[in-house]
Amino acid sequence: MSGLHQTLTLIKKDVLLELRQQYAFYGILLYIISTVFVINMMMGQPEEQIWNALFWVVQLFVSVNAIAKSFMQESRGRLLYFYSLVHPRNFIAAKLLYNILLMSVMSIITLVSCMVFLGNPVTKFWYFIGVVMLGGISLSLLFTMLAAIAAQANQNAALMAIMGFPIIMPLLMLLASVARTAFVTVYQPGLSNMFILLGGMDVLIVGLAMILFPFLWKD
């Protein structure tokens, strides 16, 4: 089997698993809706700046929860089985792509539920959708790699939060400031630079994941 074919098969397997045991998907769905609903009960419909901040915080927690299980659902035996079948690079590529897919869906759900429960202060809708997608992809890439590391450290979910939150902060800071333009017309001189930096960080994360994951898997 060629590398591309292996990767596609692995993605297909993950999607199939997701479709068959839907508890994970509905679990996260419930997680999103209840989080947003709690915010709604506490502060009604917040102003745009707070809306933006809360949206990204919800995104952060959703991505941690959605992606943490991508390695935890695999038992040791099954990982060993994959190890004997595919190259680790194809395996991590499949995980990255699958998580991008998953987070894109989750991002849309978060966005819709935020708009329903917390009001809609977004003025440039399509721009914001673009930023949300970019954010979802960035978060999923970074957390996939961290989930792989945490899986090595005795499948510790708390560890993922400890490692992940400081590392994700530069990304979130960039995303929140890039998203600001979608709410009010503000003058942001370095906007295109920030997009370049975000894209650059994504490329960096993918590159590092591709290079480092084979080492991580060598048990």
Binding site: M145, I149, Q152, A153, M163, I167, M169, P170, M173, L174, L197, G200, M201, L204, L208, L212, F215, L216, K218
Partner: peptide
């Protein structure tokens, strides 16, 4: 092994965090 991998990751994030942003 695991901490070496995290360390490389951390350093890669340190540069944009403290130098570029």
């Amino acid at each position: 092994r695991v901490s070496a991998i995290y360390n490389i990751f951390a350093f890669a994030m340190l540069i944009p965090l403290t130098y570029i942003i």
